[in-house]
């Protein structure tokens, strides 16, 4: 069967991420001991930041899909909700896990309950876990879709909150390193690896979303065919 766009994007994303990690650990310049407690752990930055970026894309898809289902009863938007929640789960966990490892090395603690950005992002990831597990425990239907799309809409309130948190409340989690002007910007080579990582994760998450939507569509088609068979048997 000929690979489709989603599958090509997935493959591209995987290759790009692999390249990013290789560059991150073997080529990217090291940071100084003055700035970081654990320069070696800092290299997780090239995974952590792009995965957080991809998670925001996924949560955005989750929101769009949830809104599209709630207000338009669109089947395609429901498939986007499903894809967004699964992608958000994957990338959210990647971000949280990598952040915990880095935090343990850099801060001496994997988590900080007083940091707003950490906790709102953690809540978003937990929401994605809830949506995926919850949806899998229920038969598909309007009740299931309405309930979980509702959660998807409310949860999205956390996304801009999380993003703004570092610009207003930066407590322990470092502030943004891109888009802040000269101060706080990163070295050219580091920026290049980061950019590659961001592109790779974007390709991965778009591929994931497209492929997931296709799978959900196939599942819905199977259900319709089963209903036709049920009627024929009767």
């Amino acid at each position: 069967m000929k690979p489709r766009l989603g599958e090509w994007l997935l493959l591209t994303g995987f290759l790009g991420i692999t390249s990013t990690l290789l560059l991150a650990f073997l080529w990217a310049p090291s940071v100084s001991l003055d700035a970081f407690e654990s320069p070696a752990a800092q290299r997780l930055f090239y995974w952590h930041v792009p995965s957080a970026w991809a998670a925001f894309i996924a949560f955005g898809a989750l929101f769009l899909g949830s809104a599209g289902w709630m207000f338009k009863r669109s089947e395609r938007m429901w498939r986007l909700h499903v894809a967004g929640s699964e992608a958000g789960l994957a990338t959210g966990l990647m971000t949280v896990w990598s952040g915990c490892v880095w935090g343990a090395a850099e801060w001496g603690t994997p988590w900080d309950w007083s940091d707003v950005r950490l906790n709102t992002f953690g809540l978003l990831t937990l929401l994605a876990v809830y949506l995926v597990l919850g949806r899998n425990s229920q038969p598909d239907g309007i009740e299931t879709r309405d309930t979980f799309a509702g959660f998807g809409l409310y949860g999205f309130v956390l996304v801009p909150f999380t993003y703004i948190a570092t610009r207003i409340w930066a407590i322990r989690h470092p502030g943004p390193v891109v888009g802040t002007g000269d101060e706080g910007s990163i070295n050219g080579d580091m920026g290049l690896v980061l950019f590659l990582g961001a592109l790779s994760f974007t390709a991965l998450i778009m591929g994931h979303i497209l492929t997931s939507m296709r799978i959900t569509k196939c599942e819905q088609r199977i259900f319709q065919v089963q209903q036709v068979l049920d009627k024929e048997v009767l």
């Binding site: 597990l133 425990s137 038969p139 239907g141 309930t147």
Partner: peptide, 9 residues
């Protein structure tokens, strides 16, 4: 509203 509300954690 879910068909199996007790199955959702």
């Amino acid at each position: 509203r879910l068909a199996r509300p007790n199955a959702v954690f």
